Amino acid sequence: MGFKLLSKLLVYLTASIMAIASPLAFSVDSSGEYPTVSEIPVGEVRLYQIADGVWSHIATQSFDGAVYPSNGLIVRDGDELLLIDTAWGAKNTAALLAEIEKQIGLPVTRAVSTHFHDDRVGGVDVLRAAGVATYASPSTRRLAEVEGNEIPTHSLEGLSSSGDAVRFGPVELFYPGAAHSTDNLIVYVPSASVLYGGCAIYELSRTSAGNVADADLAEWPTSIERIQQHYPEAQFVIPGHGLPGGLDLLKHTTNVVKAHTNRSVVE
C-alpha cells in the first residue's frame, strides 16, 4: 500500500471513529477524501466538511520552486461564519470567499490569524475590503508590521502568557507558548472536538522541520505538551499544512522538532 493511500485511509478511519463516538456532533463529509496538494491548482481553494458547521479550507501556493498546501478553518456561528487564517495570499483568499459563498452561503463576518507569517495573514486586506472584521493577538499584529505583512485590524486580548485561553464565538483560542513562531495560536472547536494546530503542528508525513527561522526550538516541545494537557479530548487535529489526523500529530511534531534540534547540535 502506497504512503499517500495509507495517509488518506488514516484520515478516513479517524473521521469514521469520530462519527461513531459522537453521532450528534459529527456529520463528516462523505463526498470524498481530504484534498491534497496535487489536486488543488494554485489560485483555487477546496472546502472539506469535518463536522456539522465545521470545515477546513485548503489552498496551495508556490514557494521556492515548489507547491505547498495550506489549511485553515471555518466555523459556523449562528447565521454567520468565523474564518481562521487566510488562504495564503490575496488571490487565494478572494477564491476562498467565493467558494464559501458557493458552498455554504453564509457571510464571513470575523477572521482570526493564528500567527504573523504570510500563509496566515496574506489576504487580510481582501477580507477587510469584503467587510470582514480581522483579528490577531497584539504580538501577531506587531510582528506582521515588522515583517511588512498585512496586519489584522483588531487585537485579541488575554493571550499574552503561555497557557492563556479565551473564548471567541464558537471557538476557544489558546496560546501554548512559542513553537513554530513566538505568537502562534491554537484554535479548538469544543462542539466538535476539532483542534486546529496551525503551523505549530505537523502532518504525519512530514519528517523535516522546514521553516524554523522564527521558531523557538527549545520551547516548542513544552508548548505541545500544554496543548495535549489542555485538549486531551480532541479527536480531529488539523495541521497548518497537509493531512489531518488525531492527537498523534502532536507527538510526531515533537519528535521531528527534537530530531532537528539534535542534528543542529551535532553539526
Rank of each mutant, 00 (worst) to 15 (best):
A66W: 06
S191F: 06
Y48C: 12
V212P: 10
V189E: 09
G163V: 13
G105P: 09
I104F: 04
G163F: 10
H117I: 00
Y202A: 06
G169Y: 15
P152F: 04
F168Y: 13
V124W: 03
H230L: 07
E80Q: 14
G65C: 03
W220T: 01
G53D: 05
V124I: 04
S162K: 14
T60W: 04
G240M: 02
L82M: 13
L156P: 03
L83S: 03
A94P: 02
R128H: 11
R206N: 11
L47C: 03
A111M: 15
D64R: 09
K4Y: 15
K258R: 09
T182K: 13
S137M: 10
F116V: 03
A98G: 14
L13S: 07
H230Y: 07
T86C: 15
A25D: 06
Y68W: 04
D79S: 15
G131N: 11
A19S: 07
L83I: 15
D29Q: 11
S31P: 10
P170R: 14
L159T: 14
A130P: 04
R206T: 11
Y175E: 02
D164H: 10
S205M: 14
I50D: 02
V132N: 03
V108H: 00
Y12R: 11
S27G: 08
T93D: 00
R120V: 02
V121E: 00
A98F: 14
E267W: 10
S137P: 05
S113Y: 03
A179E: 03
L83N: 01
T207G: 11
I224F: 03
K8R: 09
T93V: 00
L24G: 05
E219G: 10
S155A: 09
S31Q: 08
R263T: 04
G148Y: 08
G148T: 07
V28W: 07
G163Y: 13
A165K: 15
Y231C: 05
A136K: 03
K91N: 11
A144H: 03
S30L: 11
L97E: 03
G123H: 02
I40W: 08
R110L: 14
P23T: 05
H57T: 11
V266R: 10
D164C: 04
F168S: 03
S162A: 14
R263L: 07
E99W: 13
G78Q: 12
E80T: 13
A133R: 09
P232F: 15
N211M: 13
A144F: 02
G32V: 06
L24Q: 13
W55G: 00
P35A: 08
P35T: 06
A133G: 09
I74V: 07
A94S: 13
H115S: 00
L83G: 01
V187L: 14
V54H: 00
A200G: 11
A87V: 01
S27I: 05
L47G: 01
V42R: 08
S160T: 13
G246V: 11
G240L: 02
E44T: 05
I201C: 04
Q61E: 07
L106P: 04
E267P: 12
S162F: 12
Y188F: 11
F174C: 03
V28A: 12
L10Y: 12
A144M: 07
L250I: 04
V11T: 06
Q229D: 15
H260E: 09
I17M: 04
V166M: 08
P244Q: 11
F3K: 07
D79V: 13
P244T: 12
A259K: 05
A213W: 10
G210Y: 06
G123F: 00
I227M: 06
V187S: 05
R120K: 04
A200C: 04
L97I: 03
Y68A: 07
R128F: 14
G89V: 02
I186E: 01
G197E: 01
I201A: 12
C199W: 01
A129N: 13
L81A: 13
A192T: 10
S193G: 08
P232I: 13
L24E: 07
V194Y: 03
L195F: 03
T207R: 09
R120F: 01
Q229C: 06
L159S: 02
V256P: 01
Y34E: 13
I201V: 11
A21Q: 10
S31L: 08
A129P: 04
L173N: 02
T60S: 11
E80A: 13
